[in-house]
Nucleic acid binder design. Structure first.
Lengths: 157, 157
DNA sequence: TATTGTTATACTCTATAACTATA
DNA sequence: TATAGTTATAGAGTATAACAATA
């Protein structure tokens, strides 16, 4: 934010409930990181949603689409389309689950694993750069507050 | 998050850089609030993007589309389409800028102002509920940390 | 030349819901 | 009956870029 925008934001913030200000700032940060991430991941030919799939499947191979949907907070229908596109791109495969003939288990292809090995550290380095201005205690405090809000969202669902 | 999911998330988090954990938690909270907001705003016939336009124009009538694009972190092309839809819905109007014949100034219609008067407080109440678990000091700390990250994003743009 | 706004393209993601096949 | 996955629909949002009018 430019100094001018920063000042304007603060002025506007002055009239608002603290909770609303917290949310606006959080949303702003999210959107900016999202956009930066999007540009960053383009070098790997990935969208942010595809990166999330790659990261999840890569760190827990064999998970079901249902489980993936739960982790990504999207519907199973959306996951199906996402997996379709990534299978077309040769990054993931669906394997039949021997114990449940309805289910598929998701795995990365060799190509997917190679991309995982490069893209995930690269993306994490970007995040480290962006969030690196907060020291360890601040990270902990930030995470604790976000957990608090997360739980409030589950409580009065 | 269920206790099981919470535990799983914490276990996974243990292997990761603190910055990455912070980002994952932030993204998770954002997405959940976004989804909740989406459902909440449906009663007013608004998408979240349209609500953002309503809130911005309502609190700063006469702003240009360019300025609106800057505030919403989207392109002017996107704003054009958004404003189109909201003008079709009878919520905003484009007025010619007397000082700059290229520009438009955005205003709410009477109907838009009525909706603003109802939807904005309602949405703010929802946010207050979600973020209300944090006390005043925590809100301040959260906002300060988010500002820190926001500035980091501007620094190495 | 730079800026405001418009238009057009193409794609991804999303919500929603009906559908199948298994369990 | 419930669950895993698929498919279809419809829409919104986005990036990107070319374009017109005006500054």
């Amino acid at each position: 934010m430019s100094p001018v925008q920063e000042e304007a934001a603060t002025a506007r913030a002055g009239h608002r409930q603290p909770t609303v200000v917290s949310w606006l700032r959080l949303a702003r940060v999210y959107q900016k990181v999202q956009q930066r991430t999007q540009r960053h991941l383009r070098q790997f030919g990935l969208t942010t949603a595809q990166f999330d799939v790659l990261a999840q499947v890569g760190s827990a191979e064999g998970l079901s689409q249902q489980e993936l949907a739960r982790r990504l907070l999207v519907t199973k229908g959306n996951v199906c389309g996402l997996v379709d596109r990534m299978a077309d791109a040769g990054l993931v495969v669906r394997r039949a689950d021997p114990d449940d003939r309805r289910a598929h288990r998701l795995e990365l292809t060799d190509q997917g694993r190679q991309l995982y090995a490069v893209a995930v550290p690269s993306q994490e380095a970007l995040i480290a750069e962006i969030f690196g201005g907060l020291d360890r205690d601040e990270q902990r405090a930030l995470q604790a507050m976000l957990r608090n809000v997360d739980h409030a969202l589950d409580a009065d669902a």
